[in-house]
Design a protein around this nucleic acid. Structure first.
Lengths: 190, 190
DNA sequence: GTCTATAGCTCGATAGAC
DNA sequence: GTCTATCGAGCTATAGAC
């Protein structure tokens, strides 16, 4: 069962990840779902409230996906590569980038709660990566900076992939930038 | 001597780097420079034309700044660290991020020429970094991927720095995320 | 090259019927 | 919970005087 609120969030999330927070409107969601704008306002009274709901759901879902990587992967190396796969799969779905990467760029347009949630998302990711690096035997004095570097490289790789896939609607035959960058980092850090 | 066109570009570039391409308007430039919107249209008929001029100037200026790093730094390591300093200094100026990072996120809103120029900017940076890595003795089979990883980590570090500095207008006392990430990458790659 | 005035459109959001 | 109708503001852009 999918509620209308869920369908609105699905549409909005894709729009944010592809066009940016200031690059879509309620009219776009309205057209995609064939419901009117006031109906969307009924579920999410303001665009800011929609952004709050978006990032809350994104954090939950990302935590679940990361947990699956944790359960399936064996060893630190596989965990880090599997984690990078989450980012690569995002981009594979129509050239989307990380919702929080977009929210970081458009932070000035967003309410404080969303900015704080964006920061918290990254802090959460950094902590997880640092834990995996510690598991791999990296000294505790280095895991924090290394985790931040890994996270930065993944977010940045999405930007490079986006920029590269753009001239026209070209896509597909290109090398996987995200997985390549992740592999370089894993090899260099471990 | 500073022409009106230059002052418009200065204002617009800062606005894009702080708010995103869809997060500012001609009215913002008008207010900042105390000239009217039609005057801006006289110099840059459309917002798309303004974006074209912005990225053209950005590429030129970035090439000049990079050349200064090339002239001043001794050895590959210093060159890479000095290059990262260009990104760190950008963020130090009011939390700006790379213009091309913003344009990568907002690519869907931009004309094809600007998207291609954004891609070309990244290709240019990757080539330069790859050359420095080769100079440091890295085998040619690895320099391309390593350069892309370094570039991705710098662009991503700007996003993390932006997200982190955001809860309220907090700033200043924070650690330099960009330089930290760059140092981690340089140590790991060389 | 800068201005006043305004067109034409889209935006986020609201009122109120069903 | 969804709709029709609409508001007021902001947007990019243009016409035309100076």
């Amino acid at each position: 069962m999918t509620t209308t609120a869920d369908r609105i969030l699905d549409s909005a999330q894709t729009l944010v990840q592809v066009r940016g927070y200031n690059g879509f409107s309620y009219a776009d969601i309205s057209a995609e779902l064939s419901i009117t704008k006031p109906s969307i306002h009924h579920h999410f009274p303001t665009k800011a409230a929609l952004a709050e709901a978006l990032i809350a759901r994104y954090r939950e879902r990302f935590a679940v996906a990361r947990k699956e990587v944790d359960d399936d992967a064996v060893g630190a190396r596989q965990r880090l590569v599997g984690y990078a796969g989450l980012y690569a799969e995002t981009f594979a779905q129509g050239g989307r980038i990380c919702l929080c990467g977009v929210f970081a760029v458009d932070a000035e347009s967003l309410p404080v709660q969303v900015r704080q949630a964006t920061d918290a998302f990254f802090a959460d990711q950094r902590q997880w990566v640092a834990g995996v690096l510690a598991e791999a035997g990296m000294p505790a004095t280095r895991t924090g900076a290394a985790a931040e570097a890994y996270l930065a490289s993944l977010e940045g790789a999405l930007l490079l992939a986006r920029a590269h896939g753009q001239p026209d609607g070209a896509a597909g035959q290109d090398r996987d930038v995200v997985r390549s960058v992740a592999a370089t980092l894993v090899d260099a850090l471990l």
